[in-house]
């Protein structure tokens, strides 16, 4: 299983739909995608992780890197995730305090805080 990435725009938000496995091998592709979006002026990102089967610390590192980049432009990076096994990794690393995590893309798009 490789990593799949697709992007679409909803208002001022850019949705990044991620599928497959985010690990040490595939994480650089996600990093490139996030860097490219920020370089192109997309500063409000919603990363939809509902199609992610596996996430490790390398993937977390890329998401944190993305957050730092958008924050440099006063932007935001929100996650969409309902999968317990993925959420658990955010909890044990304390990153639930760093990322806003939403139950749906609609909810993430509507969020403004």
């Amino acid at each position: 299983m490789d990593l799949s990435l697709s992007t679409r725009t909803v208002g001022d938000r850019t949705i990044v739909e991620v599928g497959g496995e985010i690990d040490v091998y595939t994480a650089p592709k996600l990093r490139e995608q996030l860097v490219e979006l920020v370089n192109d002026g997309s500063y409000h990102l919603v990363v939809d992780m509902e199609g992610v089967d596996f996430l490790d610390s390398t993937g977390l590192g890329v998401l944190v890197g993305g957050l730092k980049r958008v924050r440099a432009h006063e932007g935001s990076l929100r996650l969409v995730c309902n999968q317990e096994r993925i959420l658990k990794i955010f909890r044990i690393t304390g990153l639930t305090k760093v990322f806003p995590i939403h139950g749906s893309v609609d909810e993430a798009v509507a969020a403004t805080d």
Binding site: D56, S57, T58, L60, G61, V62, V64, G65, L67, K68, I89, I92, T93, G94, L95, V98
Partner: peptide
């Protein structure tokens, strides 16, 4: 430490890896 005081650096993933293992 169980919970990093600050967000881990993008490049410093080795420590986060160990943090994940010890959490699991």
């Amino acid at each position: 430490t169980e919970q990093p005081a600050s967000a881990p650096e993008e490049e410093g993933e080795g420590e986060m890896g160990l943090a994940v293992i010890s959490g699991l």
